[in-house]
Design a protein around this nucleic acid. Structure first.
Lengths: 216, 216
DNA sequence: TCTTACATACATACGCGAATGTATGTATGA
DNA sequence: TCATACATACATTCGCGTATGTATGTAAGA
């Protein structure tokens, strides 16, 4: 076959990424063969090796295609809901995560691959670091905003803002876990907002009058 | 080498399982080779094929070694804390999970392997079914006990006992996720009991007087 | 504007190692 | 002596990486 123009080559690259998503979702990253990925994309392995160095680079590109930094999310939400209280912002951040998990199929696929169809070892060090970084980033964001919320609401006895952030972190991680692993029986989107509100109300109780008096 | 007595052969079986745990933890299930597992156990692949049909059977045996059915747990707790209120029982169930996750190293290893070092596909269908069964089992237990608790406490507005059970399910799943994936930065055991109490107090608020009057 | 030269975007072919499953050997306990 | 509990040897498969072939897009120069 002949050489393609630049935009066409960009398309084949996308086709390869799509095919890789499908293959890795079906067989897992380890058992996904470049040969079958190529067949799905109607190219040969040569094309894959032209666009990507190896399988792990292919995986990394897949992740990069769907990753959204926390920084951008918060920025975006702050602009979208100007002057929102921290608690409102936190709720919106969580809702955004749930919504994306419920509706963005590509994001679901990629997360499912990275989280559950991938044995992370040294060869996928890049993906491993990226995963850890996303965890740290999310957690840091939660800690920061939990501190802000704690200035307006109170905290359960014996717990710090960091503790609450860790609990929220676990809840969100669990939602991803349950929703991706058991999509037929666990519906994240069901009552999502109500649940989040209930959780946050429980974790950030309204300050009782005497507490307010003590703290002020 | 020569034939061993029955108990000795049982020991080699255990050694093989131990070695498999270590290998699969290091390299992941897919990249774990039976040859290296055999070396770690000071046997040859022949021994492995004698005791297990193939790698997936080996994995299944590993899981079976650490699995504890929910039925047994509840039974055990009911006997241990006789006459406990449902809420107390639920708290103890969750605490038991966290404690095991924090202290039982073999359990941690096996869970980490099955959850994060294993690309579940048709070849590991047995493990996949077992995992799904554990999920369903746990969830059913949570739903049941949530209903019981809901008879004594109240529920957040707009949520059912099933909803609450799903939230608790997500929280527990998230604890496993965070603790196993980021053992250095995420400490499950830190303030575990206080956190669980705060969570349950938030999800099962004390019935307010007028609500009690209305419901009765 | 037409040609030339080079880079691009793949396809094809080859060699390699690694892991698996099986078949067979063998020494020992019961 | 016979089944057990392995060890050893062998064949086969599979996927990867690389080397190489090839046709076309594209830019520079005449």
């Amino acid at each position: 076959m002949a050489r393609k123009t630049k935009s066409e080559s960009e398309q084949t690259r996308e086709h390869i990424l799509d095919a890789a998503e499908a293959e890795m979702l079906d067989r897992g990253v380890g058992k996904a063969s470049l040969e079958r990925i190529a067949q799905r994309a109607n190219v040969t392995r040569g094309a894959i090796y032209w666009h990507f160095e190896d399988k792990s680079a292919l995986l990394a590109a897949m992740v990069a295609r769907t990753k959204m930094p926390m920084r951008d999310l918060r920025q975006c939400l702050s602009e979208h809901i100007p002057g929102a209280a921290p608690l409102e912002l936190l709720k919106e951040m969580m809702l955004h995560g749930v919504n994306r998990l419920a509706t963005d199929d590509q994001h679901r696929r990629v997360c499912h691959i990275v989280l559950h169809r991938c044995e992370i070892d040294q060869s996928e060090a890049a993906s491993a670091r990226l995963l850890a970084a996303m965890f740290d980033e999310t957690r840091a964001a939660l800690v920061a905003i939990s501190h802000e919320v704690a200035e307006q609401r109170s905290l359960p006895a014996g717990l710090t803002a960091e503790d609450i952030a860790d609990m929220i972190m676990a809840y969100m991680a669990g939602l991803y876990e349950c929703s991706l692993r058991h999509p037929d029986t666990y519906r994240v989107e069901h009552g999502a907002e109500t649940k989040i509100e209930a959780l946050l109300n429980g974790l950030f109780p309204l300050p009782s009058p005497e507490q307010t008096a003590t703290s002020s």
